Amino acid sequence: MATFVLIHGAGDVGWYWHLVEAELRSRGHHTVAPDLPCDDDTAGLPEYADAVIAAAGDREDLVVVGHSLGGFTAPLVCERVPARLMVLVAPMIPAPGEAVTEYWANTGWDTEPREEHDDVFYQDVAPGLAAEARARGRAQSETRLGEPTPMGAWPSVPTRVLICRDDRLLPPGYLHRVARQRLGVVPDEIDGGHTPALSRPGTLTDRLVRYL
């Protein structure tokens, strides 16, 4: 069975994945979902990758899954561990040498047609669960997000992109374009908003397992 290494997004914690972890473990897989030092002004993308790799330890048969900003960390992890697969969920998809702060302008996010909403993260998450997610969240430090990613080239690991049809932050049309331009990949789609590990953990788990 595989070990799924689950990387959360900006200002979040590993708890984000807890429902997916339960689903994966019930199917016989192992999981690792570390907290990244995203609220630490001294930490940047290299330290995020360090935290993930330390949590993975000497486990093998790894599937590295990055959500949202975790798309910047996942390829750095895959450069250093023996991953069999990388899955990017509702992701930011970095280019070599790109800083997180450059991503939005470089990908044309600001000019992408989309509706304005008050809630772009948890619109389809049960209210109690959304409240807990907000309470557990942490402030995302931006101190080092202006540094270029140390990724020199996309790692030679099979990569799948999974997008959410109702994503208000990273709309499907936008992610289809970015995935095609940057990876030459046609994304897969599931229903739901930007945080499917909370709103649709069973559906997300089905996809992750199917990719094996």
Rank of each mutant, 00 (worst) to 15 (best):
G9P: 11
E23V: 02
C78R: 00
E21I: 03
A74P: 10
P94E: 04
R182I: 06
G202Y: 00
R114P: 07
V89L: 14
G14A: 12
A130H: 01
I7Q: 01
V77I: 07
C164S: 15
D12Y: 06
D40Y: 10
L85H: 15
E47N: 09
A130D: 04
C38E: 13
Y103V: 00
V63T: 14
A197T: 13
V161Y: 00
G152D: 15
R144M: 04
H18W: 05
G9C: 12
S141N: 08
G146K: 04
G14D: 05
D61G: 08
R25H: 10
E47T: 05
G173I: 09
L36Y: 03
H18M: 03
L183H: 07
D188A: 14
A135F: 02
E98D: 11
A126L: 09
G193N: 12
L76I: 12
T149L: 04
W104E: 14
D35L: 09
D118P: 03
V100A: 12
Y48P: 13
E79A: 10
D191C: 01
V125E: 08
P94M: 00
R134V: 15
L183K: 07
I7H: 10
R160I: 05
P148Q: 08
L204S: 08
G71T: 02
Q181T: 13
G71P: 05
T111G: 03
R138C: 10
H194M: 02
R180T: 15
A95G: 02
L88S: 03
D39Q: 08
P172K: 05
M151W: 03
R160H: 14
L208C: 13
A126G: 09
L62F: 03
D118N: 12
G146D: 14
V178K: 07
V209C: 12
A99P: 10
I190W: 11
T195A: 12
G137V: 01
I190C: 07
V52D: 05
M92T: 09
R200E: 10
G202N: 04
Y48W: 13
R144K: 14
P94H: 00
S68R: 01
